[in-house]
Nucleic acid binder design. Structure first.
Lengths: 200, 200
DNA sequence: GGTAGATGGTACCGATTGGTTCGATCGACT
DNA sequence: AGTCGATCGAACCAATCGGTACCATCTACC
């Protein structure tokens, strides 16, 4: 969807549109898999406009990774919040949401991790590390509410499951991967909370 | 270490040397992060030689990924074999070996998965899928010998742990990651083998 | 209606890309 | 001694790369 011609009185709107379209294209083609010229054509914007908004291609990449990290984290946190108070239900919600993602035809693995694998720039590494930190925070909350003996260790184990499931789904196909992750997560949850508290 | 001048009477030796040196450089810099010219200089070989042996840069990439997959799989299988017959010991050996890998200063994540994230070529995807298949085979063997209720499901869960631990170690640092993976794997193993059989 | 800013389109830049070619050289084998 | 194949080093190629400059155009605002 091209950006409207002329000044639409909203430069920030243009920026947001570029960001949204570029996110899809860069995810599909890879950060270095498409040149700026073709990227601009796909996004529907002129080179000058893109460079005025983001300075360099790296600037665009970083801006889109920041935006994507925030969007994805929020989406996952919302799935957890909608699952009620029970930590087991919350974990189930996480892996069900992931499975829906894996099933999308455009799924190509975690965009943040893919980006870090391609782009050897310090800023990108920082963004992806922060992204994992957000996940870890979410999972630590679940582990803490579950009364885990060591919530931080359980959270790191859950993070390993989340990222591992994403990698496996990307390379061996999505089928069943979310469920495998979910069952593993629930098993770890049980193993980490020796005091069984009955559901109210 | 440059290839010896003239015909060292062993073209295959030349090929192997290129492969070995290129593996390190491509892992460190990324597949698209270094040009053929600089790559040849780092490897210590002329462009003509490289192209005679591998045809294209993609050909070199695929050859080195095949070789690396085989080497890594063999290395991990050897670690398992050296751990004796007990499945729990074998899983411990897997994650101890992984932790030693994570601790290497040049560790940058799984080369196969990184390559697939960068290089959108079908052949590369096939190589990485086969690589995960080898891991899965190894883990299925362990799960079967452990008497798991469903060895294939347990093996996929263990694969998720292996790949997830590698991703987390690459982006949040190696510290403790192998241990987290190992403890999670042993917990899943216990949960999947309801019939406790005493160690002989 | 006129001005100012945001944009599209296009030509253009130097640098780098993957890949080719050629002559000189070197070692092994006859 | 002489041939042959493998190699190096460097020149060379077209294509593409990220990035810049210029100008006509369009819209919002006055």
């Amino acid at each position: 969807m091209p950006v409207a011609k002329g000044s639409t009185i909203d430069p920030e709107r243009t920026r947001a549109t570029i960001l949204e379209a570029a996110t899809l294209v860069l995810y599909e083609r890879g950060l270095d898999g498409i040149g700026v010229t073709e990227l601009c054509a796909r996004v529907g914007v002129s080179k000058e406009t893109l460079y005025r908004h983001f300075g360099t291609k790296d600037g665009l990449v970083q801006a889109m990774l920041e935006a994507r990290s925030e969007r994805v984290s929020t989406w996952l946190a919302a799935a957890v919040a909608a699952a009620g108070d029970d930590p087991a239900d919350q974990l189930t919600a996480v892996f069900d949401a992931l499975q829906r993602w894996y099933d999308e035809p455009v799924f190509r693995g975690c965009a943040m991790m893919n980006a870090a694998a391609q782009h050897h720039v310090e800023a990108v590494r920082a963004i992806t590390a922060r992204h994992l930190g957000r996940y870890l925070e979410l999972l630590t909350g679940i582990a803490t509410r579950a009364g885990a003996a060591d919530p931080h260790v359980l959270a790191r184990q859950l993070l390993i499951l989340v990222e591992g499931a994403t990698v496996v789904a990307a390379h061996l196909g999505p089928s069943g991967t979310g469920e495998h992750g979910r069952r593993a997560a629930l098993a770890l949850l049980s193993a980490s909370t020796p005091d069984r508290r009955p559901r109210p």
